[in-house]
Design a protein around this nucleic acid. Structure first.
Lengths: 260, 260
DNA sequence: CGAGATTACTTTACGTCGTAAGGAGTCGCA
DNA sequence: TGCGACTCCTTACGACGTAAAGTAATCTCG
């Protein structure tokens, strides 16, 4: 399930995202739940079950039925938006620029990476029409503030910010999917690959000759951390090396602007 | 729905991906369908409805019930794998290196971008445990062959290939999601943003002061193509500028290796 | 204090999905 | 001729998000 932000009533959605929890006096029974409690339960359930978590599961965790949630939240899409913005609150609002933009961006990327690792379902929230919540703005601002210090013009910075976001999300998604697949099938990466490469070579024996460049790409491999599962190791390595290359590119752009 | 590759019987899945359609003589009624026909129908339906297409819809397009498909294909996951690999066959198997690696990579990225634009559901197929089909290998090989010509070591190339993949997929996904949201809600990007920014400013009037760097990032904007919808324009601009930065980074790495 | 409005939450129900189970009809081969 | 393999169908199950309607609790107002 991919979630598109803010499909419902714009006012209701945005008020939920920005509200201070104003406890007015109202008729009717005392509310046993709250938006905050539901969002928290939603995050807990989604951390375990992924984006395919059910409203029934969230309700159950709070000792209610699924329909009870609809008193507080218009629907699953809006709940996910709230969960998303709450999750973004885990990230720092700003990064020190004492040592320049590069260490700051590196730190930003690592923080994002780790946040995605804790809450992989966040990667399935659409970025196209972003969640217009305070903390989503916050993380975007924190990156923007770093990038502005390069002195590059807005157009370039948008491209760089986009590339950084795509990169971190993509790398994190690979890890998330590898973990999800291991969990769902009970088959570790190594077993998965071993079983399939055996069949593959049996059916297509001249695989190595057909795809020679792939073999070069697979060379020169050593585990970053021998504790990590196969695919995850790959992703961590790719993250580190890829980020370095990306930032080298930013540095080149920044240098070109500094001395025209 | 996110699809994880090859969860079922490895042998069956891989045979389906690599088989030559061997028409043996067998008892029973003549097959009215074929794996190829089903895959083709699946792609057509998914191009219209996205990854949430139903087996019933694919069957209907072929004048059969959903269950008829299960004679040919073990399940939806395997069908998606086949659809994925067939889609990758649209891409060139290799790129000329006459002008060096940079134009070749640029062409590769544009081809991928356009393929994702034609078949956005492909972006929801997990990359962690890749589809082990001939054409998936083919596109990976085509990029690998280009990158190898930089002379960089395998470890670096993996990072670069990963970064390129993440980047292109992320950028394409933004477009795909924007289009899907427009289609599903009937609300164009401009309307969506207009309605929400009005409410946003009403609820949080000092937005501009709270997030100053964001405003710098939003400056210096002019439409790449005035025909394009708002968010799509953004994504195209990000794709071009982001790719340039990324390749600058690759160039820096390559130069560092050339003259140590 | 009692009536009516409003709220919190439940039960039931609908239409969607992937696919398991079983049956009907069709064909190749003994 | 009949057996077994095969294609395709109908039916059914348990999941999902959520609409509709009902019950009970708590407020405000007379």
């Amino acid at each position: 399930m991919v979630v598109y932000a803010g499909q419902g009533d714009p006012r209701r959605s945005i008020e939920l995202l920005w509200r201070g929890s104003a406890a007015e006096k109202r008729p009717g029974p005392k509310p046993g739940l709250s938006v905050d409690a539901i969002v928290e339960a939603g995050i807990a359930v989604a951390d375990e079950q992924g984006m395919a978590f059910s409203m029934r599961a969230v309700g159950e965790r709070l000792g209610r039925t699924a329909m009870a949630l609809y008193t507080y939240v218009p629907g699953k899409n809006e709940l996910v938006d709230l969960m998303y913005d709450r999750t973004m609150a885990e990230l720092p609002a700003s990064y020190p620029l004492d040592d320049g933009w590069r260490p700051a961006v590196t730190r930003w990327a690592h923080d994002m990476w780790e946040c995605y690792g804790r809450h992989p379902w966040v990667l399935q929230v659409s970025q196209a029409r972003p969640v217009l919540g305070p903390h989503e703005f916050g993380v975007t601002e924190s990156l923007a503030a770093i990038l502005v210090s390069t002195g590059l013009p807005g157009r370039q910075l948008r491209g760089i910010a986009g590339a950084l976001n795509y990169f971190v999300r993509g790398a994190a998604q690979t890890v998330a999917e590898a973990r999800a697949a291991s969990g769902a099938t009970g088959e570790a990466d190594e077993e998965w690959w071993y079983a399939r490469s055996a069949v593959l070579l049996e059916i297509e024996p001249d695989l190595a000759e057909k795809y020679p460049a792939l073999h070069v790409l697979e060379s020169d491999r050593e585990p970053v951390d021998p504790e990590l599962p196969y695919l995850e190791n790959d992703a961590v390595e790719n993250f580190r090396n890829g980020l370095r290359v990306l930032l080298d590119g930013v540095e080149a752009s920044a240098a070109a602007v500094a001395k025209p």
